[in-house]
């Protein structure tokens, strides 16, 4: 998207305050800022354990201008269900409830509660900002860690041996009204998805890729570039799915080779060209699959 039109589409709301404790270049901090810009001040944030538990600031501080509830690692969706119920009883139907969870709290420990809430179609927006490992505890692998990646528990000699869990497909399989991927590197697409999510009731799920300079091992200033390459290389396609059946690509940017994305990050340094080729094949396979889904959805309309 041309730079000149981006600013008109990003709301003015500024609900994140400076002085928070994110690392320089943190994709997760930016993701929160952008999402809150669209959500606005009538929002309650549920925050299970993740990097943001630190970013939000220690007692007695907060880095958000909206109410924030820190909670245990696996409870994001359950706590949000309770808050939603309370607000509904109080007649506060127009207050947004969001869960802001990392990949560990979503793909791993929080998946049960998320699945439960999604199955009940609880009325909240679940945002997973995905930095692809347990970064807050010092870069341990999660089920969101991509194949081949180094982490402190998947050392270079035995890197991550399984593919990243397809959380979007899992959520789509719950037939929730809205699920989408998004990226801080495509801010208009991101806020548009938040806006669309806000127009729908029920469980809405946003999977936001959040590049992590210290965890992925790249220079701070390349955070946006990394997120952009993830999308351009189709490692992280930007899609949305309604009711688990209507799939669509929301962005189809200029294509870059998977190699460019992988080689830009120290966590993949040990990979051979052949191994990167395997990654590329897997990326192509999944992209084709998504395209099939999108085409089939299109044909239905």
């Amino acid at each position: 998207m041309s730079q000149t039109i981006i600013k008109d589409r990003i709301p003015e709301n500024e609900l994140l305050m400076g002085g928070h404790l994110a690392c320089p270049g943190c994709g997760g901090a930016l993701a929160m800022r952008l999402v809150l810009k669209e959500l606005g001040p009538k929002t309650i944030v549920v925050l299970p354990a993740c990097c943001w538990s630190i970013i939000a600031g220690p007692y007695p501080q907060s880095s958000l201008k909206v109410p924030l509830y820190h909670t245990a690692f696996e409870t994001g969706a359950a706590v949000a269900s309770g808050i939603r119920a309370a607000l509904d009883i109080q007649g506060q139907h127009d207050t947004n409830v969001i869960v802001w969870a990392g990949d560990g709290g979503t793909f791993d420990i929080g998946l049960q509660a998320l699945s439960g809430a999604a199955e009940r179609n609880e009325d909240f927006i679940y945002c997973c900002y995905d930095n692809e490992a347990y970064m807050n505890t010092g870069i341990q692998r999660s089920s969101a860690t991509p194949w081949g990646a180094w982490t402190t528990t998947t050392p270079s000699k035995h890197p991550q041996a399984t593919d990243k869990k397809d959380i979007l497909a899992i959520m789509a399989a719950h037939r929730i009204p809205y699920a989408a991927t998004a990226s801080v590197s495509y801010p208009v697409d991101l806020v548009d998805k938040v806006k669309k999510a806000m127009s729908i009731r029920g469980t809405r799920f946003l999977h936001i890729l959040a590049p992590c300079p210290p965890g992925w091992k790249f220079e701070d200033e390349r955070a946006i570039d990394m997120g952009r390459m993830a999308v351009q290389s189709r490692v992280f396609p930007l899609v949305e799915v309604e009711h688990g059946t209507d799939w669509r690509f929301t962005m189809d940017p200029e294509h870059v080779p998977v190699q460019d994305y992988i080689r830009a990050q120290g966590r993949f340094r040990h990979l051979t060209d052949e191994q990167i080729g395997h990654i590329s094949d897997a990326v192509d396979y999944r992209y084709e699959h998504l395209r099939d889904l999108a085409e089939r959805s299109q044909a239905k309309v």
């Binding site: 928070h20 939000a56 600031g57």
Partner: peptide
């Protein structure tokens, strides 16, 4: 643990 100030006081 309830907040009464903002992170803005941190000169990050």
């Amino acid at each position: 643990s309830v907040s009464s100030s903002s992170t803005e006081q941190n000169i990050t």
